[in-house]
Design a protein around this nucleic acid. Structure first.
Length: 211
DNA sequence: TAGGCCATCTGGTCCT
DNA sequence: AGGACCAGATGGCCTA
């Protein structure tokens, strides 16, 4: 589902000709260097020894760049071809960029606990939950520091691994945000809209926690 | 069938 | 100039 069949077909169509197409584009844009393969034979041609001036002139001419063939205005067809080729390249880059973004999102999903375990969070859920998760973990550390025992007090025998069970904090990995929490938002950069409520941790912070 | 999610395309803007 | 980034548009797939 990740790659559309349409895309595969396009690639199959494009790949055998893409380098050709690029060469063609470069050529049309004047990016390629002029071919000078035939010049060698001319340079090695015999010079009469009596004419130093002629020899100098020839040397000078041999250094000079060969005249380019006159370049007339590009036909609209070739302009269209160039534009299309650039578009195709840009599309490939964009597709690749989005694939990288999704890969990063997948690796983020891997470190987030979900229930059930194989549940796949959507993109927006992943980002929001990661935000909440980080917030909850840092709150856990903060509480541990306040208790004085550091992490040891939280990880003592009898307490579970999950910070949610070892402190008053809890976070959600579901799509449904906490409906109740919409007041304080000191831990979040964005706070006002109801949509942003979803960014908030599911713990109910006490007001003086943030003074 | 409507709505949500997603991949892709596209044109504009910014950056190197 | 070319690539990266971004946001809007579009169409496909899936589910309630």
């Amino acid at each position: 589902m990740y790659v559309k069949s349409e895309y595969k077909e396009e690639e199959a169509l494009l790949s055998p000709t893409s380098s050709e197409e690029e060469e063609e584009e470069e050529d049309e844009l004047g990016l390629r260097r002029p071919r000078r393969a035939q010049e060698g034979s001319e340079r090695g041609s015999f010079q009469p020894p009596d004419s130093k001036q002629a020899a100098r002139r020839l040397r000078a001419e041999s250094k000079r760049r060969p005249a380019r063939p006159p370049r007339g205005p590009k036909s609209s067809e070739s302009v269209q071809r160039i534009k299309k080729s650039r578009r195709v390249k840009a599309n490939n880059r964009e597709r690749n960029r989005m694939h990288n973004l999704n890969t990063a999102l997948d690796s983020l999903r891997e470190v987030l606990p979900t229930f059930p375990e194989d549940a796949k969070l959507t993109k927006i859920e992943t980002l929001r939950f990661a935000h909440n998760y980080i917030w909850a973990l840092s709150e856990t550390l903060r509480l541990a520091d306040q208790l004085g025992g550091g992490l040891d007090s939280l990880l003592s025998p009898g307490s579970a691994d999950s910070p949610s069970s070892s402190s008053s904090l809890a976070w959600s990995c579901t799509a449904s945000p906490s409906p109740s929490y919409s007041t304080l938002s000191p831990a979040s950069p964005s706070s006002s809209t109801s949509d942003m409520d979803y960014w908030q941790p599911y713990a109910q912070p006490r007001a003086n926690d943030f003074i």
